[in-house]
Amino acid sequence: MRTLTLATGLALAGTLGANELTVYTYSSFTSDWGPGPEIKSAFEAQCDCTLNFVSSDDGVSLLNRVRLEGVNTQADVVLGVDDALIEEARALELFQPHGIDWSDLPLAADLAWSDDLYVPFDYGYFAFVYDTENIDSPATSMEELLSSDVSILYQDPRTSTVGQGLMHWMQALYGDNGVTEAWQALAERTVTVTQGWSESYGMFQEGEADYVLSYTTSPAYHMVAEDTDRYQAATFEEGHVAQIEVAAISAFTDQAELAAEFLDFLLSREAQQILPVTNWMLPVRTDVELPAAFDRLATPERIGHSPTEIHEHRQAWIRTWRNAVSQ
């Protein structure tokens, strides 16, 4: 225990003297084209503090990191864990309540949010994105995708929240009995399984595959930022799994007040206006004005397991995936 106290003491010494907030997040959030830079300057303009981002590859690695660091963590806020992981994180007691009153906020009804630890900051639906110059008639269902002669890129469900989203999607569609076969069908069409979302999306844009696992909102990026309709998301008739991205205050922070202020800021109209056009996800507030491109996005039906069910089965589902695709 003495070593722990000493380490905490050192950690505290590092943050003394400056009003600093350290936010752990995933790497595409902090990249030059991601929301990081704008969120930082907007929050710093109102908080009289310095906001530091520390990034991990993807959402799952993020949680692993916080878990590994435990009481020694430098994080005041963890941003970018998704709803599939929140029960696991809750069980590990890594976070503390934020004290936000949900009744005051115009939150999107789809979210039905009332959690005391986690603050949703954006959401989206997983979808396979394709290049209209390669694919004339995109798949309209997972079944069709898995039986067609195409090449696919997706992310490792052990490291990436997007890959994990696909795992939940496959489980929701095929159940324990049929999912192995479905994974194997996917494996035959897989170019490679990347660790994070950025790698696979980069490869896709270089023409390495016909489809890449991403979000229904990804085409908005190409429409708004690149002024092209070339990339589109395939809508599946079976329905899509949603991802709600959340932020939470570390249980071990010494900046709980500032951290809560930051979470409030994430829910503000200002931040909600920034996120859709930098992180390319849907805002959690309903009173945000979005570029016209967002009206042209697919609005799929939402399916999937609850966070509690996911927490119970996640390890078993990962083993199933690992076994199926390593054959």
Binding site: D156, T190, V193, R322, V325
Partner: peptide, 9 residues
């Protein structure tokens, strides 16, 4: 880097 996922591990 070149294994390309769980199939070649």
């Amino acid at each position: 880097a070149l294994g390309g996922g769980p199939r070649a591990t």
